[in-house]
């Protein structure tokens, strides 16, 4: 299966003086385009109906929080799961290798929405059939939608990132591992001190792209009644009968989110020592 990752790694931009960085923005045609964009923005603000905004602002804020929490938690849990998934595919015993490989292929080969509905409706209906589960302390959580959304998003991120980790583990130069062995390190220590950190390091540049992709996958949880940002905006559209205004706001928020995430991740990436 070809790698699904189509986002090229982002290299940290060399620091330029402010004037040199501003220069491309001040080209005449860009000034005209910026003026047009401002005019369009002004028209959108003044001509369209935004009277609903103050009423719904707290809900939108809450939805944004839900989106960000889902993103952060599923990325963290998914990455933790991706590490053994990748390692096992390179060095594990055959049955584990097949299992991990099969998991990645199945998750990457079927739509996320289908997985989400399978887990939410399927597992939800299954759990409800067992009195033991209904009586347990977990049941108040299992009755809600977000654990299923979190589980699906985590599994999906783990599968895509696991494939990347497989490549990263396989790509650590042989010589480094042989050098560690030559120092007399036991296998486990080679893994802990050399192989593992080097593989994670190699996989980091693609992580930013994967996190943006994960952000773009989160609105699907709205289809299982999790009230994330997208669900709140859908609610606004149903309440106010407005087609475009909430949608435009939603797009603006996602653009800001993607932009901020890209900048923050690029900054973080610049702080990781590259070893060159």
């Amino acid at each position: 299966m070809p790698d699904i990752d189509i986002v090229t790694p982002i290299h940290p931009a060399p620091a330029l003086p402010l004037r040199a960085r501003l220069a491309p923005l001040l080209m005449p045609h860009r000034l005209v385009m910026a003026a047009l964009a401002l005019a369009a923005l002004a028209a959108i603000v003044t001509q369209m109906n935004w009277s609903w905004l103050p009423v719904y602002l707290p809900k939108i804020g809450h939805g944004l929080l839900v989106t960000l929490v889902l993103l952060g938690s599923s990325v963290a849990a998914g990455f933790a799961l991706a590490l053994p998934l990748g390692a096992v595919q390179v060095t594990g015993p055959a049955p584990l290798r097949w299992l991990a490989n099969g998991f990645c292929t199945v998750i990457r080969g079927t739509p996320l929405l289908l997985q989400l509905w399978l887990i939410y409706y399927g597992l939800g209906a299954l759990f409800a059939q067992y009195p033991e589960i209904r009586a347990s302390w977990l049941w108040p959580y299992l009755r809600q939608a977000w654990p299923y959304g979190f589980l699906t998003l985590t599994l999906s991120f783990a599968a895509y990132q696991g494939e990347i980790m497989r490549g990263a583990f396989a790509g650590v130069p042989r010589g480094e591992l042989e050098a560690a062995r030559a120092f007399g390190m036991p296998r486990l220590m080679v893994f802990r001190r050399v192989w593992f950190p080097r593989a994670v390091h190699r996989a980091l540049p693609t992580l930013a792209g994967e996190i943006i992709l994960q952000l773009k996958a989160t609105p699907l949880v709205a289809t299982i009644t999790v009230t994330d940002l997208y669900a709140v905006i859908t609610r606004v559209r149903q309440d106010t009968f407005l087609t475009y205004e909430p949608l435009l706001l939603l797009i603006a928020i996602y653009l800001c989110l993607s932009g901020t995430l890209t900048i923050v991740l690029r900054w973080l990436e610049g702080r990781v020592p590259s070893g060159h």
Binding site: V7, M27, H29, R30, M33, I212, L215, K216, A217, T218, P219, L220, Y230, L247, L250, I251, Y254, L255, S258, G259
Partner: peptide
């Protein structure tokens, strides 16, 4: 030309930054 290039950049930026569903 410059304008065409910028428009294409904006298009790909929009597509890559906003969820497919939206």
């Amino acid at each position: 030309g410059r304008i065409l290039r910028d428009i294409a950049e904006l298009y790909t930026l929009l597509i890559r930054a906003v969820p497919e569903l939206v």
